[in-house]
Write a protein that binds this DNA or RNA. Structure first.
Lengths: 334, 334
DNA sequence: TTGAAAGCGCTAACAG
DNA sequence: CTGTTAGCGCTTTCAA
């Protein structure tokens, strides 16, 4: 049994519009009547119907957030950053996870648009085929901001990490530690961040004269399981590099498991560094040297960008965050 | 500029209701006209307005999910389980995180109800004061299912883990390993799971004649930071038990950090077990013995329960999952 | 200060 | 097979 504005109007012998005004703090209701209305609404357990309000006013106070993987702590912290700016100004977050699946991405995006969200924060699935849907969203006038990843040629605001300079720090550090052969575990081949990180490593290695054999470039499929499988293959190679760069936190977890299983010693048997920090980087023995992103900061900025888009100009703005280097003990000095 | 059903009706010189029928696959439209309508809708980039549909039909195909902490992997996996049953039947998830804050909980619940979600899956904030709001929700006719935690005296379906038998396994294992003094790091004092786990430990210890001094019961505040602080205090105690039970995964992380910092050896200096498994339990040296819950399973069941509530009877059903014991190497045989 | 009426976009019952 | 009409719950003119 839902209570509507009419029910409470009838009970008080007034008109629905009066109730509406009273409840919304609009002028034009006597103080005492307003008080009575508010009291009764409270007592009857009235809850406004946002679908009706959304329909009438065309706004819902809801921001859609599209994340690829809810179980990756990175995105959890991003969301936390978003909440920090959005919640205080009365917005709610509608989280959708795509599980890196383009179909789910499209479906979620459609739902969000259909839901009349007032804006969308998206970390697009790294597959390439989603340009059209994002273009459509952008054209339909729904403010859109990308975070962590972008879709090339879609002209919206975004905030990402400087992947190339991040991996460059990693490579340089390995170089200075005496490493001249490096392997890299990559994200899924089509992934935006994956390409950036791989190319960054390759470029830096070339400049420094570091050898990266083809068989040392292994696909960890962005996931723990993929990282596990790739690490298995990698460690059974007969000619191995002295160091391995792992392109994200989840895959590092897979690598760690293989290392524990096989009894390998880090950094004696292999030096390890990763893109992304994580709890397990700190906990592992030895703790893992890495470049860390700042997910909460990223979420904060993304939300701010979106708010700007909603309230002010529609100019697109691009923010590139620096990853910062954290030295721990997973790299051998040669 | 949004496209409505009318726009496309006008363009084709037909009536809006015809367009509606065509788009929804309802009978009563000639095949060719339907085809034409669908084509045009596609071409014009028509997106149905769910707020309008929701208003008209009174249903939104949205399930609200309330989780206390999005950065806890436990809940991430729960959500994954929910998605597995809900997505295939056309439901979308509206995730809200309460951050263990009762105010945010109330606010989120109101929004969900106002949004006309068709059901709510909630892991209530462990504070006690939320009974009224949940009662209101339940009475308002919105199907509601609790998972992981419950609110006492609110009569709705739920799925939780058998905390008491879980900790009993832990205590028994410690006992068999020769431990006669045990400490416990508890969740926040008011928390449902926290109480259950603490009481379970105390009860089992009493039965077995294990000593638990008051100063060995330390509050880890459910979080990593809290666990860190509590562990600091604990390890500086002059009389310590031989084993410590940590009541959840996040606090264990804090404990691990203290152990790394202080150079303590597990299990030589202290034996460690935890409620909840986690990635870091496996990665730590030595790997941590624990009882593991099955979050994905829990999410699956919760969603199924909710679906039953929505479509069939309104009978409440209670499911209690067993935690399963995982032996690793963090406990010394004395 | 309050009421009456129109309408947001859509669907469903009823006509034709 | 297609059109007309009414109405979901709310806000917002316009009148009174």
């Amino acid at each position: 049994m839902k209570i509507t504005i009419k029910d409470i109007a009838k009970k008080l012998g007034v008109n629905a519009s009066t109730v509406s005004r009273a409840l919304n703090g609009k002028p034009g209701v006597s103080a005492q009547l307003r008080e009575k209305i508010i009291q009764l609404a409270e007592k009857m357990g009235y809850l406004p119907d946002l679908t009706a309000m959304g329909l009438k006013k065309g706004q819902t106070k809801i921001i859609g957030v599209l994340i690829p993987d809810i179980s990756n702590p990175f995105f959890a912290y991003t969301v936390r950053g978003m909440e920090k700016v959005l919640r205080p100004i009365g917005y709610h977050l509608l989280l959708c996870s795509t599980n890196e699946d383009p179909d789910q991405e499209v479906e979620n995006l459609r739902t969000l648009a259909s839901q009349k969200v007032e804006g969308i924060l998206a970390a697009p699935v790294d597959s390439g085929g989603n340009r059209t849907i994002y273009k459509k969203i952008a054209e339909s006038g729904i403010p859109l901001v990308f975070f962590d990843r972008i879709v090339p040629n879609v002209d919206v605001s975004y905030v990402i990490t400087d992947n190339e300079s991040g991996v460059r720090e990693l490579v340089t550090y390995l170089y200075k530690s005496g490493h001249r052969t490096i392997g890299i575990m990559t994200l899924r081949a089509r992934s935006f961040t994956g390409k950036e990180r791989l190319n960054g490593v390759l470029k830096a290695c070339k400049e420094l004269g570091i050898t990266v054999q083809n068989e040392w470039i292994i696909d960890g499929e962005s996931s723990e399981e993929g990282g596990y499988r790739a690490a298995k293959r990698f460690f059974s190679l007969c000619r191995k590099p002295t160091a391995l760069i792992v392109s994200n936190n989840l895959m590092m977890l897979g690598v760690m498991k293989v290392i524990k299983e096989t009894g390998l010693k880090v950094p004696q048997d292999i030096s390890l560094v990763s893109f992304d920090d994580s709890h397990w980087n700190e906990i592992f023995e030895p703790p893992i040297t890495c470049v860390a992103q700042e997910p909460e900061q990223m979420g904060l900025i993304a939300a701010t960008l979106l708010i700007n888009n909603i309230f002010h100009d529609k100019k697109t703005s691009r923010t590139v965050l620096k990853a910062h280097f954290i030295e721990r003990q997973s790299v051998a000095k040669i």
